[in-house]
Each structure stands twice: as C-alpha cells, then as structure tokens.
Design a protein around this nucleic acid. Structure first.
Lengths: 142, 142
DNA sequence: TTATATGCAAACAATTTGCATCCTG
DNA sequence: CAGGATGCAAATTGTTTGCATATAA
C-alpha cells in the first residue's frame, strides 16, 4: 500500500481515500475479487463509493502495474495484486477455488518459446483447470 | 466437419445448414474468430443467419467438445476448433496476431503440479503475451 | 408429425462514459 | 485555485432469452 501511494504520486496521480481503500481491500482479501465484490466490501467503509470509481481505479492500478486482471471461465474479471513474484493459477471447475503456484520451469520455457518465434515476451498467463480433491470425491459420489 | 456431423448426430442433435456453415467457417478461417466475425462471414452465404444462432451453435459445439472458447485480453471471446493436438497461444499485444504452439514439457509440468496440489487436471490454458518481431521494430522506431 | 432450431426483438450483465460537483495538491 | 477525481445516471457492448414460426428426422 505504501508502494501504491508511491506509485500514484510518482505518476502525478492523486491519492484519494477511495483509491487507498480499494487498494487495501485487494491486498487484504488476498486477491481474485471481482469488481462488484470489491465494491460491496468497500462500501462497508465508504457507503457512497460508486462502482464506476471502482472500475476507474482498477484501470488505473492496472496501468501502474500494481494490479492484474484475471479472466477465468466466468462472465466477469477478477483482480489481484501484482508483485514481483510471478505466479499462475490452478482453478477448480467444481467449486471455483483458485490456488496460486509458482513455476520456475514455466518461466524459462516461455522465454525460450518467445525467442523461437521472435517474440519479446512481456508476460504470461497459465491456468490449469481441473477438480480439487473435495470436488473429485463429490463427483465420484454421484 | 464430417467429424462434426457425426458428433451432432451422435448426441441426437440436428444437422442444420446453419450449424454446418458455422462449423465450416471456424475450420476454414483457422480459428481465433469472435462471434460477430463468424456472424459477418456466415452472412455472406446465409444472409438471414442471426447472431443468436451463432451464439447458440458455439455453445453447442463447445459442449460437444468440438470447439473451445478463448478469452484473450479483449472484451470478447474467440473460438477455435479443438482437435486432439493440445496447443497454446502466443499473443502479440501490438497487432493482436495469435500464434499457436505446442509444448510437451508444459503438459508434463502441468500434470505434476496438479498432482502436487491434489487436483485432477482436465485442461490448461497458456498464453504468452509480448510483441512480435514487426511490432518490436515499430515500437523502437517511435 | 413433432420436437428441435431459427430469427427477431427484447432482456441482461459487466463495463464505460458524460457531466456537474468535489477535493487534492 | 485549477485540474484531476468522484458520484450518478445514462449509454455501450457482448451475450442470453422468450416466443412464434420453420424445419430436420
């Protein structure tokens, strides 16, 4: 969050209570929240906060590289804090649970692939889809 | 496409001219088309085809496992033929070009990661984002 | 013949935008 | 004090649905 203030200030963007609140919520909740979940949580502290401000702030934070937008198999986007730790996601198709994982191999492979195709790779998204242990049981049970 | 007919027939679904047309377009164009691009192309042969039929057909083909839905960094979905060859995508952030690649390593790594987290992996999506050779030049030029 | 598909228009949901007002710098 | 940020309502965009009609099996 201090990071966030600095990033904002650095770009000549204003630090407002709304922006700080939204940033804090994304951090505290550990990520993977949709815009309206963020809105709902934020309104507990700032009831007049509008959904458009949430979207505008998310757009800003994305530009600043503080947040990244995730689009799983749902009809909306989720957002997470973006730190120096590159990670990917394991998503349960049964219950929607999301697990983060890191993979040094992946990073290397991706870079090699980029070279091979003459691409300068700036980012990667890896989503593994499947069923978590509980959902596997539940499905067998049927 | 013959495959498609069989799949449809097998599930007791009807084979209509619209469905054949849409399936053919996705195959011929090589994939990565959005719903309205498919609609636009299809209307050249069948001017009364409605966008809802396109969506309904895409949904059906997805269920049958003939087509998969891709969601890149855009605001809409793209669709591609889904064969036995598992592949992933390299997407140029400059011009939107999409290159498919295969990666045996990835598949293994993904399966191992699934095991490690107690997940039964049923699918994976890997997107590498960056700039293609031409777009790199264009950007340097600025 | 009869259930399934289609076309059209209307409904939806997520996200974006215009504009008057507010507030940070 | 001035220009960027907010709230609200209205507009957009991609996708889905209800229903009368058309058509594959």
């Amino acid at each position: 969050m201090i990071n966030g203030r600095q990033a904002l200030r650095f770009r000549g963007k204003r630090i407002t209570s709304q922006r700080e609140l939204i940033l804090r919520i994304i951090q505290e909740q550990g990520g993977h929240l949709g815009a309206d979940e963020i809105h709902r949580l934020a309104r507990r502290e700032c009831p007049r906060l509008s959904l458009s401000t949430v979207y505008r702030t998310l757009g800003l934070l994305k530009e600043l590289g503080l947040v990244r937008e995730l689009r799983f198999e749902e009809g909306y986007s989720r957002y997470e804090m973006l730190g120096p730790d590159k990670h990917h996601h394991l998503v349960c198709l049964g219950c929607g649970k999301v697990i983060e994982f890191q993979c040094a191999h992946c990073a290397r492979i991706h870079r090699d692939l980029g070279d091979h195709h003459g691409f300068q790779i700036t980012g990667s998204r890896v989503e593994l889809l499947g069923y978590c242990a509980e959902c596997q049981k539940r499905r067998e049970g049927r």
